[in-house]
Structures are given as C-alpha cells and as structure tokens.
Nucleic acid binder design. Structure first.
Lengths: 195, 195
DNA sequence: GGCATGATGTTATCGATGTCAACTTCGAAT
DNA sequence: ATTCGAAGTTGACATCGATAACATCATGCC
C-alpha cells in the first residue's frame, strides 16, 4: 500500500496521477477536453499543485503524448510481424489511430511540434518514426518506386492521411477497412493491378 | 462610402466583417488563436454583438471554413488544368494546405464535423470533395489499380497525409516538393518505376 | 410625416480556464 | 531535534464564451 498511505497532504505520486487523469480526459473528449483544473480535480488536488510537476498545460500534454508515442511504437512493431510486414505495419498505424483517436490527434497536434524541446517527447516520437523508415528501407523498392525516401514519404502519407480523414469525420470508418484490404492486395514490389 | 458613413451604432455589415476578422486571426495564429471577443474587438464592436449573427463561436468558425472550402475547390479546379491533371490537382491540394495552414487546419478540424448541420459549410465542402472524386473517376484505372473508390481513397489519403504531416511539423517543408515531383514521375496509368 | 416595432448593439454579469504570488505543511538530512 | 527544501494550498487576476436585460436605430405602416 505504498500509494494509499499517503498523508493526504503530500500525494507522493502526483505526476503520474495527473498524466493518467489527463489521459482519461483525452479519451473521453479529445484534446480540447483536457484541462489542468479538471485533471487536478479528478486527482483530488488543488489546481496549482500541477505546476510543481509541469511547467504549464502544454508540458502536461507533452507527457501524455510521449506515452502515446511509446504505445504507438509498440503497436507498429507488433504489426510488422504480420505475413506482409509492410501492410501489417500500415494496418497497425491505422488501427492505432482509430482505437485511440484523442491520443492520435494530440500526438500529431501542431501544439506538440512547438513542444519539440521536451526530450522525452521527441525521443519517443523519433523512435516510433524510425520504425516507419526502417520498414520502408527493408521493403524498398516498394510498390511506389525505388527511392527509400520516396517510399517512406508516400506510404507514411497514405496511412496518415487516411487515419486523419476518418478521424476528422470526412470519410466513414468503413473506408479504413477498404484501405487496409487494398494495401494487402498490393504487396511490396508488386506492380499495379492492371488486370 | 456606403460602408464608412454608418451611424457608429449600427455597423450594417457586421457579419462579413466578423468573418474577415476571424480569418485574419486564423492566418496569424491558427485555429486556436481565433476568439469571439478578439474578432469583435478588431471590428470595433462589443463582444456580444456577435451573437446577433452567429449562434456561437463554432458557427463563426463554420462560416470561415465554408469560405475556405470554396477557395479550396477553386484551387483544385485550377490545378486540374495542368499538363497532368491528376498530379496537378494533387499539387494544388498540397499547395493550398501549405499556403493557408490555419485555414486548412480549421477546415479539417473535428470541430467542423460536428458542425455538419450547417448547410453552407457542407455544401462548400461537398463541392470541393466532389472534384477529387471526379478526377479519380476520369483517371481510373490510375496508378493504384482499377477501382474508382480505391483510387479516390488512396490518392486523397496521400496528398492529405503529406499536407498534415508537414503542417504539423513532423516532416520538413521540402518533403512536399519531393512528393510533388514523385507524383509527376508517375502519371496516371503508368506502372511502378521498376528501373 | 409621425410613430410603433423589430433588428441590431450595449452593459452587466456568470462560470470556467490557465497562471502567478505568497503562504503552509511535511519529510528527511544533518 | 532542528532546519530546509520540496510539495500543496489559498487567493487573486486576466481572459474567454455565453446569457439576460436594456438601449438605439431604421424602416414600414397609417
């Protein structure tokens, strides 16, 4: 009971508790719904207590996003072990976005680009992105031509674009299924389905 | 001087003026920087005057976004008249996003999906999206296979994903140039660059 | 032409948010 | 045991979106 016998004044694990609370808000109502005061309220602490652990609201969001990027990387790595590693990773990308829409939106929020100074966040993000590039490397020349750079760019753009279009409500969720099927129908190295 | 000899009490053109002000804010600081009060302040009117013309803040944003979608449609149509209409439209898509980042982000904000009840907004958005589909139709079977649905989905996802990755600061702006070049190198109907 | 009436703006206010400054409490090292 | 810094608290401020009640003007009707 190291967490429960706290002295009611000193929480002793406020930082992770705030991150968890912020994350719950994120899951419930998207990035807009995350608030410093509300997170503090849920943890049972005064609003300003948060400033002992985070410089400001954005720093809290950055911590949440860093967690997200770590899970994202794990999901991508897992998807890679499918029969078709290239399509498997793409499907994992899309599945992650649809399964954790709030987190995905936060992770790719322009707000987070401004938070690039946070080493924890950039490390987690870079690690996840490195997986994408590595996969493109291993699969190049892929279905889009020989250049590794181009393969990464195009494949990444495709899965990312589809994810966002669905999340933003432009395309229906079914579109994701059709997309994943199309990916599987065109294994890396295969030409266009001319027949 | 029909606009300047207003009676200082009745503005007589508040609605378009507020839209213009909101748009200026959007260009300056992105969607987050748009505020009802600030827009009213710039127009020289009291904050609550806005509620005579917009149900709430989201309605104002929807009006701005509708304008954006009309310009977006015009840009896409113009791009279509390039030597390669398919790649031309794709380039126009990306160029619009990079030229008007705040507007683009607003247009594809999940906030706007919730505002789908606005007929002006949905009409403008649908018109722009119809252009994409029509182009895919005219170019199918394109570089990705015969299905029109799939061609639309894949091409749209590609240009949209790249645009967002650049806007969100994940990819450098130069990536857009390389991307557009790759599009041109693979005209519709062409197979993969196996050589 | 004078006047009622509705559209358009205003003032006052509310609840909520992020943030700062000053104060309090507690745990641990000397 | 005392002290000292870390962790939380109270109180306050500026700002925001939104509502209610009031003021002003422009216009159509007689």
């Amino acid at each position: 009971m190291s967490t429960s016998n706290r002295s009611a004044y000193h929480h002793r694990a406020l930082r992770p508790a705030l991150i968890a609370a912020a994350r719950a808000l994120l899951d419930e109502g998207g990035p807009e719904a995350v608030g410093l005061r509300e997170a503090a309220r849920r943890v049972g602490v005064s609003p300003t207590a948060t400033y002992r652990h985070f410089r400001d609201k954005d720093a809290l969001l950055a911590a949440v996003a860093a967690e997200g990027f770590r899970e994202f990387g794990a999901a991508l790595a897992a998807g890679q072990s499918a029969a078709d590693p290239f399509a498997g990773m793409g499907a994992a990308y899309i599945d992650f976005a649809l399964a954790k829409p709030g987190m995905f939106q936060l992770m790719f929020s322009p707000l987070l680009a401004a938070q690039a100074a946070d080493p924890d966040l950039s490390a987690a993000a870079d690690a996840a992105f490195a997986l994408l590039r590595k996969r493109a490397e291993a699969s190049a020349p892929g279905p889009f031509g020989g250049d590794i750079e181009a393969t990464t760019l195009i494949a990444w753009s495709m899965v990312h674009g589809l994810s966002r279009l669905v999340l933003d409500g432009v395309l229906p969720r079914e579109a994701a299924e059709g997309f994943k099927r199309a990916m599987l129908a065109r294994p890396p190295g295969a030409g266009p389905a001319t027949a």
